[in-house]
Design a protein around this nucleic acid. Structure first.
Length: 611
RNA sequence: GGUCCCGUGGUGCAGCGGCCUAGCAUACGUCCCUGUCAAGGAUGAGAUCGCCGGUUCGAAUCCGGUCGGGACCGCCA
C-alpha cells in the first residue's frame, strides 16, 4: 500500500505511510461546526461521503457519525491539498486542517445542520484509501439482504442503521437510568447454564471437563431472577441476552435482548406501573411518535379475543369484530348454519367505505383470508343501489337489516364474515383487521397505541401431551379467587399475567409469580410432571421457596422489537448491529462453521452428518 | 418439515420464447470545468442473465433440480 500523501503538512517529516502517524488530533467532529465558529481553525477526520470536483474547486462532504461538513479545496489556498483532493474517492479516510468560513451568501445548504459553514482546507492527509464499496454507503437505497449482512460494517456506516443503533443506545441508557433512579439493581446472570426441558429448544455448549455433559444458553434468566428475589435483591433488572434455537421470523433472531426485571413484595399494578411509566417517558424523550392513549388501557384476554380476535390488538384504529352467530346461525344459508351447528361462530368486520369494491378486490381479500385459514369470506355491501351480497336471498331482508344494525353499517360500507371454529374465525379476522388498518390508512405510522392485556387463562389443554400446559410460563401465579378452580376446573382459572402490547406487537410479558413450594408443585403436577421430574428439573427453585421466598413478580420486554417499532422498521434485524439471517447464520463472520477434529476430540464429541 | 416470492454489469431495476449483438439509472475509469451540495458536460470499460440439467430449430425468458436471500405456516413458556 502506498497512498498518495503529496499534501502532508510541510512541517511534518513527510512520513512514507500515512497510517504510521496520525497527523494531529481532531478539534471538532463533522457535526459540530456552526456559523459561530467562523474564523476558527479546525482539524477534522472522517470518511469521504461525496466529492464534487469542479476542476478548479473541489467540494468534499466529510462524514463521521456526528454529521457532514463541507470541505473546500481551493488551489489558490493550497495546491497540494487540492491535488490530493482530486485523487480522493468515496469512503477514503482523511484528516484535514483548515479555516472555518461562512459560506458565500446564497450557497448555504439548509438541509445540513452544518450548512452555513464550510472548511477551507490548507492541509490534507490520506489516512486510508478504500476500495469501491459493494453498495452505496452514502445513499439510503435498497440493497440485497445478503450483501448488507456480509458487509455489515459498511451498512452500519449508512444513515439508517446508524440512526437505529444510536436510538437503541439512547433507549437502553434511558432504561438503565430510569430503573436505577427507582432503586433497581442491575445484575448479570450466567450465559452458561442448565438445560430446561420446557419451552423452546436450547442452544447447547459441550463441556470439556464433564464428558457427555452440556451447558445450555439461557432462553431467559427466569429462574435466576426469581432466585435473586429470594436472595433479597428486591428490585432487579438486566439488559439480558436470550437464546432460543427455533426457526426465524422477521421479528425473531436466535439471540435477542430483553429488558428483564423482577420486584419483591408487589402485585400486578406495581410491575405494570413501573413499565408503563418507563415506556411513556422513553417515548416522550426519544421518539417523535405520539402516544395515543394514556394511561395504557387494560383489556382482558377474553375481551381482546372478542373485540379484536387476538391477544395483541392494534389499538391505533377501531374496526372491531362483531359476533353475529345469534343472527345467522339459524338462517337459511347452509355455510352459516352448519358452522354454528358444529360449535363454530359467525363473526365479521366492517370495512368502512368499501361497498364499491370490485369483484377483483373482494377476491383479493378473500384470498388473503384463505391464506390465514378461512374456507371463504361472505361479504355484504350496502350501496346506493341497495344491498349487494351473495347470501342476502338466503337469509332474507329482515335478517339483513338486523345485520346492518349489528355492524352499524351505513351506505357505502362493506362487511366481511367468517364462519368457522372460534379459533379460526378470530385468527382470520384478526389478520384481516390488521390488513385493513393499513390498507385503509387507519393505522397511523406515527402513533403508538400501548395497552395491557390481562386476565389470561393460566393453563391450556395440550392435545399432543394430553395434559395441561402453561400459557405464559410455569411460574405464573393463578388469581387468588381462582385457586379453588385448580382442583375442579383448571382450564377456567385465570392468571396474574400481563402482556404489554404496542401497535399489534407483543412488546413484553410478565406475571406475579408463585412463591410457595406447595402451589408450585401443584402446578407442575397439573402439567403432567412426575415428582421425580419435578425434583430433577426444578429442585433448586422449589427448595429456594422453602427458605423465605418473598412474594414477587416481574416482566421481560423485547428491546429489539421496541426499537424496531420506534424506528418504523419491519424487522428486528434493523435494530441489531450484527444480526443473523433467516437460517440463523452470521454472513459476516461465517458462523456457524466446522471446527477441527482436535477441538471436537477435546470436547468428547463425534459428529454424525445428516442424511 | 412445508408453502410462497426474489436472483440480469459494482448497486438498484427493465426485458419474460426469435425484435437481445441484453436496455435504463447510478456507481467506476479518462478528459473538461472556481460555488457545488444526488454538481454539470464529454467519453470509455464493465454481464457467458446464480448454478446444473431438460424442452425447443431457437431459452435471460418455459420445465425440473440445486444454491443463495427474504416472507409465512409448523415451531417459538
Amino acid at each position: 500500500m502506498a497512498p498518495a500523501i503529496s499534501s502532508a503538512p510541510a512541517t511534518d517529516p513527510a512520513p512514507a505511510l500515512a497510517w504510521s502517524v496520525l497527523p494531529a488530533k481532531r478539534t471538532h467532529t463533522c457535526g459540530d461546526l456552526r456559523a459561530g465558529g467562523a474564523g476558527e481553525r479546525a482539524i477534522l477526520q472522517g470518511w469521504v461521503h461525496r466529492r464534487r470536483d469542479h476542476g478548479g474547486l473541489i467540494f468534499i462532504d466529510l462524514r463521521d457519525r456526528y454529521g457532514l461538513t463541507q470541505l473546500v479545496f481551493n488551489p489558490a489556498i493550497s495546491a497540494e491539498a487540492h491535488a490530493l483532493a482530486s485523487t480522493l474517492r468515496s469512503e477514503y479516510v482523511i484528516s484535514i486542517e483548515g479555516t472555518v468560513n461562512l459560506r458565500p451568501a446564497g450557497t448555504e445548504n439548509p438541509h445540513l445542520p452544518t450548512g452555513e459553514i464550510e472548511v477551507a482546507v490548507q492541509r490534507a492527509v490520506l489516512l486510508n484509501p478504500s476500495k469501491t464499496p459493494p453498495f452505496y454507503v452514502n445513499e439510503d437505497v435498497p440493497v440485497e439482504e445478503s450483501l448488507r449482512l456480509k458487509y455489515r460494517y459498511l451498512d452500519l456506516r449508512r444513515q439508517r442503521l446508524r440512526d437505529n443503533i444510536m436510538l437503541r443506545h439512547r433507549a437502553v441508557k434511558f432504561m438503565r437510568d430510569f430503573l436505577d433512579a427507582r432503586g433497581f439493581v442491575e445484575v448479570e446472570t450466567p450465559i452458561l447454564t442448565r438445560s430446561t426441558p420446557e419451552g423452546a429448544r436450547d442452544f447447547l455448549v459441550p463441556s470439556r471437563l464433564h464428558p457427555a455433559e452440556f451447558y445450555a444458553l439461557p432462553q431467559a434468566p427466569q429462574q435466576f431472577k426469581q432466585l435473586l428475589m429470594v436472595a433479597g435483591m428486591d428490585r432487579y433488572f438486566q439488559i439480558a441476552r436470550c437464546f432460543r434455537d427455533e426457526d426465524q421470523r422477521a421479528d425473531r433472531q436466535p439471540e435477542f435482548t430483553q429488558l428483564d426485571l423482577e420486584m419483591a413484595f408487589v402485585d400486578e399494578a406495581d410491575v405494570t406501573g413501573v413499565i408503563e411509566d418507563l415506556h411513556s417517558e422513553l417515548v416522550k424523550r426519544l421518539s417523535h411518535k405520539r402516544l395515543l392513549v394514556q394511561p395504557f388501557p387494560r383489556i382482558s384476554y377474553a375481551e381482546a379475543m372478542e373485540r379484536y380476535g387476538t391477544d395483541r390488538p392494534d389499538l391505533r384504529f377501531g374496526l372491531e369484530l362483531v359476533d353475529v352467530t345469534h343472527l345467522l346461525g339459524t338462517s337459511g344459508f347452509g355455510v352459516f348454519r352448519s358452522a354454528a351447528e358444529r360449535g363454530g361462530m359467525i363473526k365479521g368486520i366492517k370495512a368502512p367505505g368499501c361497498a364499491n369494491w370490485s369483484r377483483r378486490e373482494i377476491d383479493q381479500v378473500t384470498q388473503l383470508a384463505r391464506s390465514f385459514g378461512a374456507k371463504g369470506l361472505a361479504t355484504a355491501a350496502w350501496t346506493e343501489e341497495g344491498i349487494r351480497s351473495p347470501f342476502r336471498q338466503h337469509v332474507g331482508d329482515e335478517v339483513m337489516a338486523r345485520l346492518q344494525q349489528a355492524f352499524d353499517a351505513r351506505t357505502g360500507d362493506l362487511i366481511a364474515l367468517v364462519a368457522d371454529k372460534p379459533a379460526v374465525a378470530n385468527e382470520v379476522l384478526h389478520r384481516l383487521r390488521d390488513h385493513l388498518g393499513v390498507q385503509l390508512g387507519l393505522a397511523d405510522p406515527n402513533a403508538l397505541a400501548f395497552c395491557w392485556v390481562v386476565d389470561f387463562p393460566l393453563l391450556e389443554w395440550d392435545e399432543d401431551r394430553s395434559s395441561w400446559t402453561f400459557t405464559h410460563n410455569p411460574f405464573c401465579a393463578p388469581k387468588d379467587t381462582d385457586l379453588v378452580l385448580l382442583d375442579t376446573d383448571p382450564g377456567r382459572a385465570l392468571s396474574k399475567q400481563y402482556d404489554l402490547i404496542c401497535n399489534g406487537y407483543e412488546v413484553g410479558g410478565g406475571s406475579v409469580r408463585i412463591h410457595t413450594r406447595p402451589l408450585q408443585e401443584k402446578i407442575f403436577r397439573l402439567m403432567g410432571h412426575s415428582d421425580e421430574q419435578i425434583a430433577a428439573q426444578f429442585g433448586t427453585i422449589l427448595e429456594a421457596f422453602e427458605y423465605g421466598a418473598p412474594p414477587h413478580g416481574g416482566i421481560a420486554t423485547g428491546v429489539d422489537r421496541l426499537i424496531a417499532i420506534l424506528a418504523s422498521e419491519d424487522t428486528i434485524r434493523e435494530a441489531i448491529a450484527f444480526p443473523k439471517n433467516q437460517a440463523a447464520a452470521d454472513l459476516m463472520m461465517g458462523a456457524p462453521s466446522p471446527v477441527s477434529e482436535d477441538q471436537l476430540a477435546e470436547l468428547h464429541i463425534r459428529t454424525v452428518p445428516p442424511k
